[in-house]
Each structure stands twice: as C-alpha cells, then as structure tokens.
Design a protein around this nucleic acid. Sequence first.
DNA 1: TAAGATTGAGTACTCAATCTTG
DNA 2: CAAGATTGAGTACTCAATCTTA
Lengths: 156, 156
Amino acid sequence: MTGPAPPDFDLDTFLPYLLNQAAEAASRGFEDIYRSRHGMTRTQWRVMANLGKFGVMSARDICAVSHIEKTKVSRAVASLERQELLTRSRSAEDRRADKLCLTGKGLDMFADLGRHALDYDRNLRRNLGEQMSGDLTRVLRAIMAAGPGFRPDHDD
Amino acid sequence: MTGPAPPDFDLDTFLPYLLNQAAEAASRGFEDIYRSRHGMTRTQWRVMANLGKFGVMSARDICAVSHIEKTKVSRAVASLERQELLTRSRSAEDRRADKLCLTGKGLDMFADLGRHALDYDRNLRRNLGEQMSGDLTRVLRAIMAAGPGFRPDHDD
DNA sequence: TAAGATTGAGTACTCAATCTTG
DNA sequence: CAAGATTGAGTACTCAATCTTA
C-alpha cells in the first residue's frame, strides 16, 4: 500500500523560480556598478532611470510605469532629494503631487550609469547570442502584456 | 555647441530590468498561495521545495543547488524547524553539518504546494503558448549556464 | 470619499564577525 | 587556516494607518 502520490513537481522546471534565478544572475553585475560607483539602491537606480527617460514626472507616474510600490518610490525619492540628485516642485494642476526632476548632478550620474548600462546589456546579449537575445525580449514582453496571473500589478 | 550626448539608454530594453519585472509578475500569484495557505516566506518555500526534491541534504547542499545565501537558508531552516516541518540530525561524516529532512507534516505541506505549483506553472505556460514557453525555458537555462557576468554566483 | 503621498511598526535581507569542527 | 553554520547590526521592504488636497 503506497502513500499519497508524490507531486511530481520539480523546482528546475518551475517558471517563477527559473525567472527569478535568471533575473538575479542578470542583475547582479550591474548592481555592483551602481552600488560601488554611486552608493545607490536598486529602487533608487530605477527611479532615476525613469526620471532620466521621461523627464518631469510625479511619484505616481513612476509607480504607474515601473510597477514599483509607492512606499519604495517615496523613500527612494526622499533619498535622491537629500543627495541633491533630484528636485521636487508642487504641481500646479494637482497640489497633492510633486513634480520630480533630475538636477544637473542627477543628470550627470544618469549619463554615467546609462553608458555603463548600455555596455552591460550589450555584453549580456552578446553572451546570449542574437537568436536567444531576441527570443528572450519577445517572451518577456509577452509576459508583461499578459492577462491576470501574469501581471506585475495586483490591485484588483 | 551641444552638451554631452544623451546616453540613449532605455529601461524598457534593459535585460536585467525586463527579467526582474517578468520574474515578479510570474511569482506574485504563487506567492499569494504559499503565503495565504501556509504563512510561508519565499525563502522558506524554496528551501522546502529543495528538500522535497532531494530528500535528506545539508544547508550547504541547499545553498549549492539553489544559490540562496547561506544566512537566508540558515534562518529559513530554523523557522521551518520551529514549525516542525523539518528535522535536523548531526551528520556522522562531518559533524559541522546537520542533515535536514522534511517531517510528515512538512511532506504533506510540500505535496499540497507541489500540486498548486504544477497547476500554476501549467497555467502560465498555457497563457504564454507552447512556442514561447519552450523558448523561455531554453533561454533561461542558457543564462544560468553562462559564464561570468551572467551567473547567480559571485564568489570569485 | 477617493487619490497622491508619507510615516511607523514589523519582517526579511545583507554583510561582517563568530563559533565549531576538519 | 578553511569550511559548515549561526548571530548581530544595519538596511531595505511590506502593510496598515495617516495626512492633505480633489
């Protein structure tokens, strides 16, 4: 007489696990760069990258495009402001929100990190090969675009 | 006369960012399951999944196969032991190490989570389609197998 | 009442230091 | 001294509660 059938489950074929492992592997090297060069946090780097891309925007906007939690954004913004990497100005249209904008110092840092990021990404894609690099981007975009159960958001 | 050229860098094409977003999206739904059903942490779930797969093993073994930090494993094991989901016994060959093993209660929980994980993974792959699901697994494996700059480890 | 944003408390993580055995 | 493992201190994250304006 046998016990309950073993759930023939294997971590090594489990997509969430594989994706997390790969994401960690891909992120580690670049994290070393923004940490050692500028003492930044991952969240701080992402906030800065969004400001660098979009220019002036509110914390709410950053949350919307990046899917970072609002409290993480709030604390990252406060830290970047203390370091004089961004400034905030009360929005005229909606006085609950601040308009955020990189300072000259912030733009310089973003330029430096942007160059390193481009190099880093090119290197990753080269290691992967053109075929797999393209496949990966395509699949990751599909994941982000997918329906419930596969979305970064979960405010429902 | 122009300023420094803008680093035509875009977060949305940056592989580490895309991978992290996709990993978060893919993990969130399953995290809800082990958190709400069993009050587990992600690290605790992974430790349990490895023990469920390999049977008896040491904390060091878990670190080696999963690339989880040893202090995270140590604290997860301590917590699982307090909940009587695993037992430890001093190894005879190397008395620095403990042999870890799921209890009956731990095996039951693993069976439950394993079933849910299989369902969850099948659902993700179905949403993605057979083609992309296969591409993704293949590319993620390539990333894990790749050389320096693309490895989970960094003990060099 | 809801939305943008911040704060505080509790939890989990990171890194260095430590303990024990090899 | 090196390796398996744990501990402590500092950091970052999570969730609920709060404050202000719409």
